[in-house]
Amino acid sequence: MKCIIGLGNPGKKYDRTRHNVGFMVIDELIQRHQWKLDKSKFKADYTIVQTENEKLMLVKPQTFMNLSGDAVRPLMDYYHIHLENILIIFDDLDLPIGKIRLRQKGGHGGHNGIRSIIEHVGSKDFKRVRIGIGRPDSSLSIIDYVLQTFPKRDTEEVMNSVNKAADACEAWVHKPFPEVMNEYNQ
């Protein structure tokens, strides 16, 4: 089974904030295929669906971002999901708005959700889709910045990157990840 995990913060207060682009990708995949997050267990909302040739789990951890590993590890253990079958989607301050980057593995890059997952799974070797949210250009703190909604002027670019990330996730269900990286890291 492959597992796609979108990171974010639970609750209406955080809907459509920069930190929740991972949730936005999961929502896009759910909408495209008329699936439902019909399970709530292990501090996560999730579903398991059968695609043409693969069982697929879609997950939105219901911990706050900094505790994402608290949801990821129990799901991995209970469903016997191997680390090579996990893809994490999250926001990245170091990428401009509208850009996505896929990576096979890496460090946390200062992202506390990724740091938590690395600590809980004991490895940096999991696939990622990083979605650019840019950096604040004012005296706004990083925390305040990531918890804000996107301004209207960025909406189209953000939705394009969410759709592109969802396309990459769908491609990974059917293709080896290096092929998907070559296709989407342009």
Rank of each mutant, 00 (worst) to 15 (best):
G6N: 07
G8W: 12
P10V: 04
K12L: 13
M24W: 07
I26S: 03
I26Q: 02
D27C: 08
I30Q: 00
Q34L: 11
S40K: 13
F42K: 00
V49H: 02
V49T: 07
T51D: 04
N53C: 05
N53Y: 12
E54Q: 15
E54L: 08
K55C: 05
M57K: 03
V59T: 11
P61K: 10
Q62G: 05
M65Y: 13
D70Y: 12
Y78W: 13
Y79A: 08
Y79W: 14
Y79F: 15
Y79T: 09
H80P: 00
F90V: 13
D91V: 01
D92M: 03
G98Y: 05
L102M: 15
Q104G: 08
K105S: 14
G107K: 01
G107R: 01
N112W: 06
G113C: 06
I114Q: 06
I114R: 06
I114T: 04
I117M: 10
H120I: 00
H120L: 11
V121M: 10
R128F: 12
R128N: 08
V129K: 00
I131M: 05
I133E: 03
P136D: 11
S138V: 05
S138Q: 12
S139D: 15
S141T: 15
I142A: 14
D144K: 03
D144Y: 01
Y145A: 04
T149F: 00
K152H: 13
D154M: 11
M159Y: 11
S161Q: 03
S161G: 03
A168M: 02
C169T: 01
C169W: 05
E170T: 07
A171L: 10
A171I: 05
P176Q: 14
E179I: 12
V180R: 04
V180W: 05
V180D: 00
M181C: 07
E183C: 08
Y184I: 05
